[in-house]
Structure formats: structure tokens, C-alpha cells
């Protein structure tokens, strides 16, 4: 079936990106670069895992006609939006707090934020 293939590909992409994000968190040298790995890669991976669930729900909705799969796809979509938006804002909050608490980006070619009055 086509739907099964799409689901499999989405799950594979999602897990690969989540794994890369976790490796990045373990591997990068300071808190800002770790935030890069955390926000972008894990959010992207989770978006693809949710896409797999949405494709699954739609394919079951088309084959069974059961209304609960419509609910499943809509709720997964809402969770997806909530996750993407809150992750971006949360990363911004952590970065700002780290800078306010006196962490300078340790390997850095330039730091305009510390130079300014902000």
C-alpha cells in the first residue's frame, strides 16, 4: 500500500533527525550550539513523526470511515502546531536566560549582544 510506504518513510526521517538532535546535544561545545541541535532537529523530527500519524489516520478514515480517525488527525495537527510554536519560544527564553546569567558563547568569532547595552 502507498500509505504504508509514506508512513514508513516519515517515521524513518523523524527518528533519524531526532537521533541527530540528541547526538548534537551530547556533542556540541556550549549551550547555544546545543540549543541549535535541540530546537531545530528535534522539532523537525517530531513534525515528521506526527505527519506519519496524520497519514495513518487519514488512510484509516478513508478505508473504515470511522469518525474517530478524523479526530485523531485533527488533534495530532493541533499538537504539532503547539509543539513547534512553544519550542521556538522556549529556546529563545533559554538563550536569553543563559546570556543574562553570564554565560558567554565560548567558541565564538563575535558577540554583538555583550558589546551592546542590552
Amino acid at each position: 500500500m502507498i500509505a504504508d510506504t509514506i508512513i514508513l518513510v516519515c517515521i524513518a526521517i523523524g527518528l533519524v533527525f531526532n537521533t541527530l538532535g540528541v547526538i548534537g546535544i551530547l556533542r556540541f561545545p556550549d549551550v547555544y550550539t546545543r540549543l541549535h541541535a535541540e530546537t531545530k532537529t528535534t522539532t523537525f523530527g517530531t513534525i515528521f513523526l506526527s505527519l506519519a500519524v496524520i497519514v495513518y489516520a487519514i488512510s484509516r478514515l478513508l478505508s473504515d470511515g470511522d469518525a474517530q480517525f478524523l479526530t485523531l488527525s485533527v488533534h495530532t495537527f493541533v499538537a504539532l502546531i503547539a509543539l513547534a510554536f512553544t519550542n521556538a519560544t522556549g529556546a529563545h527564553a533559554i538563550a536569553r536566560a543563559a546570556h543574562r546569567s553570564g554565560q558567554v558563547p565560548s567558541p565564538a568569532v563575535i558577540d554583538r549582544y555583550s558589546e551592546g547595552d542590552a
Binding site: 549551550v31 530546537t39 528535534t42 523530527g45 506526527s50 529556546a91
Partner: peptide
């Protein structure tokens, strides 16, 4: 401490998934 918060945030995202 900010490193730990980053790790906690990642755990939250993975838990939601």
C-alpha cells in the same frame, strides 16, 4: 544549569512524540 534546561526541553519534545 542552562545545559540541563536544554536537555530537559529535548526530553519534553521527545516525550510528546
Amino acid at each position: 544549569v542552562p545545559d540541563r534546561v536544554v536537555a530537559l526541553d529535548a526530553i519534553n519534545t521527545l516525550t510528546v512524540a
